[in-house]
């Protein structure tokens, strides 16, 4: 199974997003690099609005993710509640 991944700018908002991703995606790997943080996981990874809102303590629109996003790998599905990445194999 191939890995999907997402990389975010290393800043305050991203810290909450990464925390939310880790919580919703057991066995994901977080890699810190200069100025960025990359999370990868085999097959599938999801960023859930509710979890991020819980971490941030405020309303959060899934499209806000784009402000801090650096790159991603995988097929993207985005709706009001989540952004998910997956590979079809």
């Amino acid at each position: 199974m191939s890995k999907v991944y997402i990389a975010l700018q290393d800043n305050e908002e991203s810290r909450f997003i990464v925390e939310a991703i880790e919580e919703d995606n057991p066995d994901s790997t977080v890699i810190h690099m200069p100025a960025m943080v990359r999370v990868e996981r085999e097959g599938r990874l999801v960023v859930r609005r509710e979890t991020v809102e819980e971490k941030m303590g405020r309303d959060w629109d899934v499209q806000e993710l784009h402000v801090n996003l650096i790159t991603l790998g995988g097929n993207v599905e985005e709706d009001d509640d989540a952004l998910s990445l997956h590979w079809n194999e």
Binding site: A35, H66, V67, N68, L69, I70, T71, V76
Partner: peptide, 20 residues
Amino acid sequence: TVTFGFSAQSDEARHMTLGL
């Protein structure tokens, strides 16, 4: 440079998905 680079990349995620 790193700031414009990563700020540009935040658009790139949209572009990559368009490519796919």
